[in-house]
Design a protein around this nucleic acid. Structure first.
Lengths: 341, 341
DNA sequence: TTGAAAGCGCTAACAC
DNA sequence: GTGTTAGCGCTTTCAA
């Protein structure tokens, strides 16, 4: 059994309150400080966080609920947020819900029963039903990557400028002379999917290009989905002269599809991808893409959460929108004004 | 403030003990069961796990300390272990130490102060110093992927048969007629590195092939490291006729190096890789490799931990070794007996 | 089966 | 600056 403050109290002859105050940064007479430190070392004492939590009603734990742990985009965000949180002595409890709304709700309830001080959530359930209990409990919630309609003002969030990102990518293709631009999106209804669709459509509209439904495909943000979507797009007649693929996995899948179909980039088709994942950036060295700032997203999340936690009841929820910028590679070819074939 | 048992007690007119017993699966009169359930629903009551932990000295939390969260091999193991643990109502607290022994020790201490019931660790510090406090505290420790010399009998572990895996991969190259086999390892001294080296050397020895130090390189298990190691190996004269690359990242890096050097597989050089990561299996479709059973590793870890947790003080630590099996692709070419060039 | 009561290890009044 | 004490929400004897 580990040593308790009582043990330190007995060993030093000091009262419990003094020991407690010492461990909470209070002022203690130099002589007693030494006594306490010595006894603590000798008895391997560390304050029991569980007891502390019960008393203070704060666990110094934040729950993180994500759709999938096995995903480089997500883990790089988590890695980035873990650091500042841990530095403030917060434990991070990660729950992966496999993109299942049912499990997502279970995860939230589970975390609430563990009395986490705050919740960070890349939401699977776009209705936000799973968060109700957390909101009722009054703990701060920070959404990441995806906003939830109807929760405005009740939660904070960190997102990127999805619509603008998609718009400027499409703009780039249009200014290179492309008119027939294939779009590969994630699952319908997902926050990011819809905003990226919006940006694409806005760009087309401004350029006076009539959107063609057959050019828009859903690849479910998976590699297989991307593969299939690109394959289908390139089988159209005429095929698109350019593709905009809106996440990392689908971009990899799409590039594979092109390779297998023996279609060259950018000679036969121009491509703009999404996300830059460290490990694999070398795989697609020359791809023009919209990198997401995962590290900033993660840090911003942590900072926002810490701020909310500090503010307590008087907190003000807010949405942080990070901007992105197209990163030019050599995968976009400028079409000569004359022709298309 | 959330409802407590006291509230339920008042609402139902029952004693605290009865409520508690109900929530711990004890027998309660039917009429009271209904009362309790009704009141709990109405007041949104869930037992406060923190209070429970303080009383029972068990937090139902296990700490997981890993070198890096941003790693597909590791996340697939964690994903696999999270499931069974959560099903038993255990929280999983993951700490990533960035392969820094200092941070690793901090993570262990942090988790101990949170009174985790057990520790799962893919160790960075091969001396095991960081685990001392955990062992003193008497909580079960399960090592994953890497054993630590000197801790035998005091910890459990789940590993693969590294030496045999490397041996059979090398055997395969040797029976295909290769004698000059380049080996790309992780960092020296790491458990897996040394055993894989061992297996390679054993295979050569049995075949009567003199090992050549210049053919063994360390790529630090990173993609860049693999790239560089393979580049160096292929610049030797004569270059090796086959390569055995001992993890996933280095295999990707190595394949890139070969591509950039315009060296074809298997025409110019045979390759056996390591690890199979779902997302990217399609990238190297025909590669002969040694897949690690990440899912089994994760599940086995969870099962072992749950077993140790159940056994309490009378637990018996043990090491689970999972076997691997070479997965044939088309990246190994059989050399004709006559020639080498 | 149920209830009263003690106590897990700590914090925070409050009095000194 | 320090000590005394009540109590956080729960589990667990023990007696009824």
């Amino acid at each position: 059994m580990a040593a308790t403050m009582k043990d330190i109290s007995q060993a030093t002859g000091l009262g419990l309150a003094t020991i407690s105050k010492y461990f909470n940064g209070g002022n203690v007479r130099e002589r007693n400080r030494v006594l306490i430190e010595e006894a603590s070392r000798r008895l391997h004492f560390t304050p029991n966080e569980v007891a502390r939590s019960l008393k203070t009603h704060r666990t110094r734990a934040v729950g993180v609920v994500i759709p999938e742990l096995n995903n480089a985009f997500i883990t790089s965000i988590i890695t980035a947020m873990e650091d500042p949180l841990r530095r403030q002595n917060y434990a991070v409890i990660v729950c992966d819900c496999r993109s299942d709304p049912e499990r997502e709700k279970e995860a939230v309830d589970f975390l609430l029963s563990r009395q986490v001080d705050g919740l960070i959530n890349m939401a699977t359930d776009y209705t936000g039903r799973h968060l109700r209990a957390a909101l009722n409990a009054g703990i701060p919630v920070v959404l990441v990557d995806r906003l939830i309609a109807g929760l405005e003002g009740r939660v904070s969030a960190v997102v990127i400028d999805n619509a603008r990102a998609a718009e400027s990518a499409t703009d780039a293709l249009i200014s290179a002379g492309h008119r027939r631009i294939g779009l590969v999106l994630g699952s319908p209804k997902l926050y990011t999917t819809e905003l990226r669709r919006q940006g694409y459509l806005d760009s087309l509209r401004r350029a006076g290009v009539e959107p063609e439904p057959e050019l828009v495909r859903h690849g479910g943000y998976t590699m297989d989905g991307g593969y299939q979507a690109v394959e289908e797009l390139m089988r159209l007649s005429p095929p698109p002269t350019a593709l905009f693929i809106t996440n990392f996995e689908m971009t990899i899948g799409g590039m594979l599809a092109l390779e297998h179909m023996n279609i060259h980039v950018p000679e036969d088709v121009s491509v703009i991808g999404f996300d830059k994942v460290e490990l694999f950036s070398n795989l697609l060295p020359q791809l023009t893409l919209v990198p997401q700032p995962q590290v900033s997203i993660g840090r911003e999340c942590a900072a926002l959460m810490l701020e909310l936690l500090r503010a307590g009841r008087e907190r003000t929820d807010r949405v942080v929108t990070l901007s992105t910028q197209l990163m030019a590679g050599t995968s976009v070819r400028t079409l000569t004004p004359g022709g298309r074939g």
